[in-house]
Design a protein around this nucleic acid. Structure first.
Lengths: 190, 190
DNA sequence: AGATTAGCGGAGGGCGCCTCCGCTTCGCAA
DNA sequence: TTGCGAAGCGGAGGCGCCCTCCGCTAATCT
């Protein structure tokens, strides 16, 4: 379906031989669980154990820790792309807010994983491009409807909201208040 | 001078014996340098080597990595308190913006250190209290002047701006744009 | 000066990182 | 089906870091 998402699988690729492909999947699944439990600094040997493979196999498929983190992260980005597509039904002035709220909710729970992400990597750059590509039409629609000022671009919007998503909050009410403030900053001036 | 800052030194305390006090200072100074170079995950043995003391001495003074990170962090907070005090000369509607811009600039460079900070620690809580205490009058002044909406508190403001400070940006122009958006969100509605 | 005791520091056990290479098993072709 | 070459496996082992423990050193007190 989405050609955006298809770009993501290019760097670390799933091996073709049946046993190797099984191991690859087991590793990504184990990594998802262990990173969620212990954060991005989790033991790779623990991940290999959990996946039922040797540590050598982990390193053959994912030469660096970053490669493994990224493999998990790609899945998260795909979910955001789907969420952006889902806002098409909403009116233009509501769609951007809805997507961004979803964004914050999603990123907020994956905070530990994202902190461990190498922001210079190719995969990360691709993920960013894909995310921008999916959010851009939502922003453009809001701007065309006059709900959002014209002098911001999708990169500004995503980063402003990323900041709000990452910061620690007392409770959900404060998080909502912060998102509200950020969105108010996006409204046309005057 | 500021009673706010004085609260900060209470948890990890500097030993009284002359040699021990020297070692303590050398450790904090070495930690500042090594954390800045290698991030919060830097080797503690490297810090001890750099300070010219045994690893045992490091652990006696700073039983956990967090204790050492916090000792460095306290210095950063003190600088922000000074910056808040320095805005007193500015007009009410400029002072908050000035302080927050300073805040972002400062926190932006110490990003790696702050990521490693344990947000549940007593010292961190004290630092937060001190920072809020020094920023609160600046905010109140801006609100009294009608430059900032009344339904936000200092915690909202600091966290909104913390988010902007922590996020990665393309260049300084984008950072300025993001701060501008966040500050626009703080203006009175209507 | 001698006694007291706070403080020193590094050896050592444990763990995680990562490489290397002999062994296994897959998948193809006959 | 069988045989073979290559792709893939996995764990031993070397290294660095974490942290504790305790015999030794030297600062301070009298």
């Amino acid at each position: 379906m989405s050609t955006l998402v298809d770009q993501l699988a290019t760097v670390v690729q799933r091996p073709k031989r049946a046993d190797a492909a099984r191991n690859f999947d087991a590793l990504v699944e184990a990594a998802r669980a262990v990173f969620a439990a212990d954060g991005a600094g989790a033991s790779l040997e623990e991940i290999a154990r959990r996946a039922g493979v040797g540590i050598g196999t982990l390193y053959r498929n994912f030469p660096t820790r970053d490669d493994l983190i990224e493999a998990v992260y790609v899945g998260e980005v795909e979910a955001l792309v789907v969420a952006a597509a889902a806002t098409e039904k909403l009116p233009a002035e509501k769609a951007l807010g809805a997507w961004l709220r979803r964004f914050v909710e999603y990123i907020g729970t994956k905070h530990a994983l994202i902190e461990g992400l190498n922001r210079e990597s190719t995969v990360f750059a691709q993920c960013r491009a894909v995310m921008y590509g999916s959010g851009e039409p939502v922003l453009a629609r809001a701007q065309a409807a006059g709900a959002v000022r014209d002098d911001v671009n999708i990169s500004d919007v995503v980063r402003l909201v990323s900041g709000v998503a990452a910061v620690a909050v007392d409770d959900d009410a404060q998080r909502q208040r912060l998102i509200g403030l950020a969105l108010d900053g996006l409204r046309p001036v005057g």
